[in-house]
Simulated scan of single mutants.
Amino acid sequence: MSNTPPTISDEHYRLAERIWDYHRMGHDLRPVDVAVVLGCHDLGVAACAAKLYQAGFFARMVLTGGNSPSTAEVFPRGEAVHYRQHVLDLGVPDEAVLVEPRAANTGQNITLSRQLLAEAGLAPATVMLVTMPYMQRRAYATTRRVWPEVTVVCASEPVGFRDYLAGIGDDRLVIDTMVGDLQRVIEYPDRGFAVEQHVPDDVRAAYRALVDAGFTSRLIGA
Rank of each mutant, 00 (worst) to 15 (best):
T177Y: 15
R144E: 15
V195W: 07
R218L: 09
V62S: 02
A155T: 05
A155Y: 02
D201C: 03
G160R: 12
E73A: 15
Q115A: 15
Q85L: 09
P101F: 01
D171C: 11
L52D: 06
Y134E: 12
P5K: 15
L210Q: 13
T106G: 01
D212C: 06
R137G: 00
R77W: 11
M135S: 09
T111F: 03
D202I: 06
T142H: 00
V127F: 02
M61S: 03
G180E: 10
A16Y: 13
P133I: 06
I19Q: 04
Y134R: 08
H27C: 12
C154P: 03
G167M: 12
G167L: 10
V174F: 12
R102I: 00
G78F: 05
Q54V: 07
R208G: 04
Y22A: 01
E17I: 06
A46M: 09
G121W: 09
D21A: 12
L182A: 11
G221M: 05
H198P: 04
I168D: 15
A194S: 11
H82K: 09
R208W: 14
A141Y: 01
L15R: 15
T143C: 03
R138Q: 04
T71I: 00
P200F: 06
G66S: 02
R208P: 00
W20R: 13
A49F: 02
V153D: 06
H82T: 08
D42N: 14
R24D: 10
Q108A: 05
C48R: 15
I175F: 11
R191Y: 04
E100I: 07
L63E: 04
I220Q: 08
R114A: 06
Y83V: 01
F57G: 10
L182W: 13
M1N: 09
T143E: 02
Y83A: 05
S156F: 03
S217A: 15
T151D: 11
E95I: 08
A205F: 08
E11G: 08
P6E: 02
V179F: 13
L88S: 07
V74N: 07
D212W: 09
V62E: 00
P69V: 00
L52Q: 10
V62D: 01
I19G: 02
S70C: 04
V32N: 07
V174P: 13
E100H: 06
A35C: 05
G214F: 08
D201I: 09
I8C: 08
D33F: 03
T131K: 11
